[in-house]
Nucleic acid binder design. Structure first.
Length: 306
RNA sequence: GCCUUUGUAGCUCAGUUGGUAGAGCAGUGGACUGAAAAUCCACGUGUCGUUGGUUCGAUUCCGACCGAAGGCA
């Protein structure tokens, strides 16, 4: 089976630096699996690799969408697979590097997403009904057609309840069936997955420092440009940093408050990322040593544990 | 110096007409199949500022003291 490498870890754990070292050592190319680095213009706030980094090692799946576009896992799966295949054909080692666990998994595992996407109209309609009739009513409706999904999903899990209803309405089949079939598809790559875990305390400290650096590097200016041009829509509007600063530009909060919120949201994100990664037993966790700069060397990377 | 307000969970604050207290946020754990930097779920003992008094019983009433904010001199 085709072999690939994956570098996983929460935000600010040093993935980018490690991936570049590995790419240089093993003649690899980096495939970013990050739902926000996808977007052109979200540079500082997403800690995108520098132009230098990208000139040393080829990077894929970065700057491929406009911030006004919708993006989705399924599109990522399609496009990133093309990149990985292309790299393999050229004899390069694909190194998947990114903090979006769902995207990493979408590329490695065989799992396929439901053939139907977000049909704007239908989703709008479901949303409207959700507000008119309430969460319980929608959950009950799901239970009538797909009892398993209903049992699995919490009544308040609006996003997933609505998606399950959407899939049923468009395909006539349940998402439960689709998922079951999807699970049987073998993985598309033999992936060796490395995990980076600095530990909670150190991670939070690094996040604080990173936010400070981002602001020094002009995050406010970058965010203001996008904000004033009304360019942040859909998925990109969810990007941490940009949305907090937008509240500041609107005068809803002070810059200090926005900064504090930015740090907090990033910490919340890192925690969720760790929850996702911990549940993945394919990951080999690295010994995270005292080199907190993130400049891990390859021999250190080879010292896997767990 | 006097008067008023105020002191309850890491933070912001509810509350108990006297029977030792609860929300939001933070934090921790978990989930996650076309929004995933999103979304959802679970977890709340803290000398109720200190110290006397009244009371069967006080965080709740009264006094003193300490801290904070405001007002008057």
């Amino acid at each position: 089976m085709k072999r690939v490498l994956a570098v996983c870890g929460p935000t600010a754990s040093g993935k980018t630096a490690l991936a570049i070292h590995l790419a240089l050592q093993f003649d690899g190319e980096i495939i970013s699996a990050d739902s926000m680095q996808i977007y052109r213009g979200l540079d500082i706030g997403t800690a995108k690799p520098s132009a230098d980094d990208m000139s040393i090692v080829p990077h894929h799946m970065i700057d491929i969408a406009d911030t006004s576009e919708k993006y989705s896992v399924s599109r990522f799966q399609r496009e990133a697979t093309v990149c990985a295949e292309d790299a393999l054909h050229r004899g390069k080692l694909p190194i998947i590097c990114g903090g979006t666990g769902l995207y990493v998994d979408a590329l490695i595992s065989g799992r396929e997403y439901s053939p139907v996407g977000d049909d704007g109209r239908l989703r709008e309609e479901l949303e409207r009904e959700y507000y008119e009739r309430g969460a319980a009513a929608m959950h009950e409706r799901l239970a009538a057609v797909d009892a398993e999904s209903a049992a699995r999903l919490h009544v308040n899990d609006k996003k997933r309840v609505l998606r399950a209803l959407e899939v049923y309405a468009q395909t006539g089949g349940t998402i439960t069936d689709h998922n079951a079939r999807s699970r049987l598809i073998p993985p598309r790559y033999d992936a060796f997955m490395l995990g980076l875990d600095p530990g909670r305390e150190r991670l939070y400290e690094r996040i604080g420092l990173r936010v400070k650096t981002m602001l020094e590097h002009g995050l406010e200016h970058e965010a203001r440009e996008l904000f004033e041009r009304g360019k942040l829509m859909g998925t990109a509007a969810q990007a941490i940093g940009y949305k907090e600063l937008a509240d500041y530009f609107c005068g809803k909060v002070t810059l200090d408050e926005a900064t504090e919120l930015l740090c907090r949201k990033t910490r919340n994100l890192a925690k969720r990322q760790m929850t996702w990664l911990r549940a993945d037993d394919r990951i080999a966790w690295l010994c995270y040593n005292s080199r907190i700069s993130g400049e891990l060397t390859v021999p250190e990377a080879a010292q896997t544990s767990g």
